[in-house]
């Protein structure tokens, strides 16, 4: 397999207090938003990261792009360690990873026309076979927008149009890896489909690896080859998407999958209700983080964190009492 991105034991830690106040009080002075994540993404493959709000999905994406402080662990791209500093135009790997933000309009500079926005990547990296404006025109047609859109400002675009511009900008420098944070959020179902089809089409054309972050399981079922389920900054289960859908091993995965409304009216709800709230990241439960809400939790779960079971390349999970 041709591994494009390899994340090993990644921790992202944000300081909560600085200076002398860090010594006082009993509140922790940092918070680990991503807590030991390992993941491989291969060329041409789509990997979905699924989880509730606040589970650290977006922070993981930011960390891969160098926008979040990596505390421990490493991110390797094509076998080379990615530079940790943020603005490094000279690092050729920087432009091979592209990030699409959650808010389609908010991630476009509000006082720039679409044409200027699309020319930005070429101006920053001083590349492109023709002038940045011509490249911008090419990108517009690539994502199926007519040339008139070049003169519009972001607030004059609909959500779907802005999303297309976002896709175009992300693909401008022909990256090898596209990280898409909730690419379908806030879009009509029909537009969602269009955007996803656009991404898959471009993936086939350009051989992209895609990391897609979502809590929409239908999207995952539609496009993901593999998936990872995130809870409190950890992957509780990861592996082949179809296998996980048909046979989840971790109780959290099962509950999450059961919460997805089925299109089959005869299927019945079968929904597993989890008790309790998601624990605060400031007070990470001892042992397995999920033990406070897990229907299967036993004494062991409150003491030790379960090691990785199963096969990392196929279907792997962290659970003392996995489902059959």
């Amino acid at each position: 397999m041709n591994t494009l991105l390899a994340i090993r034991d990644l921790h992202v830690r944000y300081p909560l207090k600085t200076g002398l106040s860090a010594l006082a009080g009993n509140r922790p002075s940092f918070v680990d938003v991503v807590h030991g994540v390992s993941l491989d993404i291969n060329r041409g493959e789509t990997v979905a990261i699924v989880g509730e709000s606040g589970s650290g999905k977006t922070t993981l994406a930011m960390a891969v792009c160098g926008l979040a402080p990596v505390f421990r662990g490493e991110v390797r791209f094509d076998g080379r360690q990615l530079e940790r500093e943020r603005n490094n135009r000279l690092n050729p790997d920087r432009k091979r990873v592209a990030l699409m933000f959650q808010d389609p309009v908010g991630s476009l500079s509000p006082r720039m026309t679409v044409r200027k926005i699309l020319a930005e990547p070429f101006r920053i990296h001083r590349t492109g076979s023709s002038s940045p404006e011509q490249e911008a025109r090419r990108l517009l047609s690539l994502v199926g927008l007519s040339e008139d859109f070049g003169d519009r400002y972001p607030h004059q675009l609909s959500g779907g149009q802005a999303r297309r511009v976002g896709v175009a900008r992300a693909l401008a420098l022909e990256p090898d890896l596209l990280i898409a944070d909730e690419p379908t959020a806030g879009l009509d179902v029909s537009i969602q489909g269009e955007v996803l089809n656009l991404m898959s089409r471009l993936q086939q054309q350009m051989g992209l690896g895609i990391m897609i972050i979502t809590h929409n399981l239908n999207v995952v079922r539609h496009i993901a080859d593999r998936m990872a389920i995130m809870y409190l900054g950890r992957f509780v289960e990861q592996g082949d998407a179809q296998k996980i859908f048909s046979r989840p091993r971790h109780p959290y995965t099962e509950a999450l999958l059961s919460a997805n409304p089925s299109t089959d009216p005869d299927a019945g709800s079968g929904r597993i209700e989890l008790s309790g709230e998601v624990p605060s990241l400031l007070r990470r439960p001892a042992g397995c983080e999920f033990n406070t809400r897990c229907p299967r939790a036993g004494d062991r779960c409150r003491v030790s964190f379960p090691g990785l079971a199963g096969d990392f390349g196929d279907q792997a999970y962290h659970c003392h009492f996995p489902l059959d």
């Binding site: 930011m62 792009c65 160098g66 926008l67 943020r86 603005n87 490094n88 135009r89 690092n91 920087r94 432009k95 592209a98 990030l99 933000f101 991630s107 476009l108 500079s109 930005e120 990547p121 920053i124 990296h125 900008r169 420098l173």
Partner: peptide
């Protein structure tokens, strides 16, 4: 952030 991610 998008600009920073692009390396501006």
């Amino acid at each position: 952030l998008a600009e920073r991610a692009m390396g501006a």
